[in-house]
Structures are given as C-alpha cells and as structure tokens.
Nucleic acid binder design. Structure first.
Lengths: 260, 260
DNA sequence: CGAGTTGTTGAAATGACTCAATGTTAGTGG
DNA sequence: CCACTAACATTGAGTCATTTCAACAACTCG
C-alpha cells in the first residue's frame, strides 16, 4: 500500500461516524488491523444468512443492500456510497447477516474481521458509543420508512425514494440533477414495494409534466420542488453521517469529574 | 422503598438485556441512580418529539409504542410488556424521541435520567455493548416487518401480528390462547397498516372457520397452527431478550490477553 | 444482425379503502 | 335497575389504487 493511499484511508476512517472523534494515532492503529479488498461489479460484500464476520467501509464504488423473502421475492433497503460503513453486526458474536450487499460498481472496501472490531471496541470505547449512535439513527430512519410504507401510496413513496437517491448520488447535468446509478424500473419497484409497471406508469406521467427526465436505467430530476411537493412532509432526519459523537466528550468530562 | 421491592428491582435489572452480565454489586450501583415512577393507564411514558432525557424499564403493566404521521394518522409499532426497556436513545445527547409510548395499564417504571445512563455507560462499558446488541436486534426485527409490509397483504400481516401478540401477552383459556390486552379492531389496524374495516372482516372470516374467537377488544387464538399457516414463513428471530451478551466475556478475555 | 434485457402501455382482475347504515357492548348517572 | 350515551363492531355497496397478464417497442451487447 503506497503512502498516499494510506493517508487517504486514514482520512476515510477519521471521517466515518464509526471512528469519529478518534485521535490520529488511534486511527493509525485502527488502520493497521484493516484489510483492503476489491470486489468487482456484481460481487457480494456480505451475504444474507452467512455468519457476520466482517465489518467494512466502502472506499470506492456503490453497493446495493437487499433482502430476500422466503418466497423468493427481493426487496431493496438502500444504496451504499463511498464513505459509508456496513456490517457493524460483525462486532457481536454468533450473528448472521440479515441482508445481502452487492457491488453495483467495482468496489474497494476497507474491512476488519469481526474479532478485530471487537478488539477495537475494547481499546477505544468511543467506537462502541459511536456504533450505538449509528444504530439508533438507522433505526429511526427505518421506522420512518416503515411508517411511510404503512400510510402512503406508491406515488409518494417513489417521490421520496428518488429524493433520497438524489442526495446520495445526485450529479448536476443540464436537465437538472441526475441520479448517477444504474436504476432499472424494477430496482425502484423493489425499493418502494411496488411493481415495475406502476413505477413505469408513474414515471411516464412525471415525464410528461416535465418533473423528471428518464432513460434506460437512468433518471434525472428536473424539478426537485415538484417532487418534494408530491412527497409531502420532508424527511425530518439529516439521515447519514450526522454530528460527531458528542457523548464521547460528555463522557470524558464526566470521567474527569468522577476522578476528583 | 422496602427491601423486598428493592430485591425485586435488582432481579429485574439483572435479567434485562441492557444490564445483562453485570455483577450484583454493579447492579446495586445501577439501581442506586434509578427512580421509580408510576404512570396511570393512558398516561405517556415518553412523548414523540420531546427531547430524549429518560431511559426506563417497565416493571409492571403494558405499554403501546406509536408514531404520529405529519398528517395526523397514527401507526403502532409494538407493545411493551413488563421487563422490557425503552428510551435507550436517551444515552445520546441532543436526541428527540421518535415515538410515543403510552401506558395501556397502570404502569410502574424504573427509570434513569439520560445523563445518569451516560455515566453508567462510562462506568460499565458492558452496558454499551449490550445496548449495541439490543439495537442491532431491534433493527433486524424492524427490517423483517418492513419487508413483510412491502411484500405481504393484510391477511398475512394480521396473522403475524396476532402471533407476535400471543407470544408477549398470551394466556391460556378454555378456547385456546387469549391475547391479554385491550385490543380494538382499530388498534390492530394501526399495527399492520390497514383499516379497521378490513381487520374486522378478516377476523369475522377467521371466526367462522374457528381459527379465532374474538369479542369486544379481546381476541383469542383457537388454532395457532392455522394462523401460522396463513402467516407463511415463521419469524426467524427469537426477537426479545435473547442471549446475554457474550461479547462482554470475549472482551474481558481479550483485555486479559492484551495486558500480558 | 439477433437475442436478451429493459421499458411502455392497455385491459381486466382484485385487494383494500371509503362511506354509510346498523348492531352490539360497556359504562354512566339518575 | 333502567335508560342513555359513547365507544366499539359488523356489514354492504361502490370506488380506487395497484397488480396481473399480455403484447409490443426500444435499446444494448455480443
């Protein structure tokens, strides 16, 4: 591993919420027990049902998190982009991945064996606190989506899904903002729990109103505000990668106070 | 607080997954900073939107966890029974409860101020690990329900909801197993994301087939296996209160190894 | 170029919702 | 103890969103 790559990885570690607030020395320590892996497009990062033995941070590429139903249907939970972590569950023993994560692109992953992560939890308690915060936030997001699934219809859910995708993979083009992901109608359908037919119809309708501009596996949003209008209430949470863990500071302060 | 009540509370703390694996002395310490609260039926334990400042364990009574949509509709997430904890989010600063928890019965709650919980996290790192495990498991459960919501229809979802309720509040009666909760048709509807009409119709149908036996706000299951048949795949997770946190043992072992 | 994926569109079927009418039960206060 | 009320439950008819199925068009890639 050359030096510039190493410092890039260090940056990535420091900016990821799992390792947020870690001193640089500790980050180097964390990096030391990591391994760099490359996964070709279409490969799996983690497999549903396999024992959860690996935690990772996506350095490059995009990945899709899906879940298989017992009757063979598939749903998509979300997309991962560079900088996001996955497989926190690997820190706990005797667990099984509940989802599959597949590489959409060629991906590069910085990863840790489950046992190594557990060691890091021990050496740097702050990581554990960060992990808790991440899980709490993920849970809130999922609850919000669950609620939307219960109360909203396809139009709203589709609008919301597109808005979410724009924030993680949006790219400016003349027509508006392109979602830079290979997104077939079926992929969207799996994301919102609908059929590709309904998705296609809805998109056609929006295309005619000039709200979106879609091609084969590509979708661009021309009028974000129109979509937000359809979606209704904005997502309340800043979702990903929010605030560094202030609890850690609080705790060190308390620690000092208790020591006196 | 008399002595027997105190030892009962100690038991409750020790058996709750948040404090699992804690030595008795530590549990006493945990108990020391707790406060006992009583909430009358219909009162709120935590309010959606309020700053998350309180963590608790339900000692007695049952409670309902709900979420309000911005357009005023309500969904129900789950029911809490004695022994279960809530409000782990309070350990993190600057958070807001994403749900409301209301007392179904008169409830007794052992609770901790958020700051106190943070202190406990510091003093007993195992609590943090337990918390992570709990959140991971909750997340898996929620993912499973989300998936079911996306792929299954009302009949299946209702069957599954009843099965879940039986496991947490089931009681043997001559006709079968009674769900010992005041469960209006509307409550069930909010739980599965349907209307009370559809729920009523489905239950009537099942009543005629002899699968269930329902009255006003009461439902008993006569043929569990028939419901399981309708629900399809069984819920894979042992859901609540599973395995004490083995990670803690692993970590103390590692700690010893590193010290040498 | 042909084959396979991806997308569109129509018509019919359907599950669930809405709305309204009516029945049933539990609790209240006289 | 009764009538009265409010909450809960049932049922039917009509409607709507979404799915299903089928046919076809468009695009991509070897």
């Amino acid at each position: 591993m050359d030096e510039s790559a190493q410092s890039e990885h260090l940056n990535c570690i420091l900016s990821n919420p799992v390792f947020a607030g870690l001193p640089a020395l500790a980050a180097a320590d964390v990096l030391a027990v990591s391994r760099l892996r490359s996964i070709a497009a279409g490969g799996v990062l983690v497999a549903q049902g396999a024992t959860a033995d690996r935690f990772g941070i996506l350095l490059r590429g995009r990945a899709r998190m899906t879940q298989l139903t017992s009757d063979g249907r598939q749903i998509a939970l979300r997309y991962l982009v560079a900088g996001q972590e996955f497989g926190l569950i690997a820190a706990l023993p005797d667990m099984v991945y509940p989802v599959t994560i597949e590489a959409v692109d060629d991906c590069q992953v910085l990863c840790w064996a489950g046992g190594r992560l557990a060691e890091l939890f021990l050496r740097y308690p702050q990581i554990g606190l960060n992990a808790l915060r991440i899980m709490v936030i993920r849970n809130q997001e999922l609850q919000a989506r669950y609620r939307q699934q219960l109360t909203e219809r396809v139009e709203q859910r589709l609008a919301r899904a597109l808005l979410r995708l724009v924030t993680i993979a949006g790219e400016d083009i003349p027509q508006g903002r392109l979602i830079n992901l290979p997104l077939a109608r079926e992929d969207l359908a799996e994301l919102i729990g609908a059929t590709l037919f309904t998705v296609s119809r809805t998109l056609s309708q929006w295309e005619q109103s000039g709200i979106v501009c879609s091609g084969r596996e590509r979708i661009a949003i021309c009028h974000l505000d129109a979509l937000e209008e359809i979606a209704g209430e904005p997502e309340p949470l800043p979702s990903e990668c929010v605030a560094p863990c202030a609890l850690a500071e609080l705790l060190t302060a308390k620690r000092a106070a208790l020591a006196t």
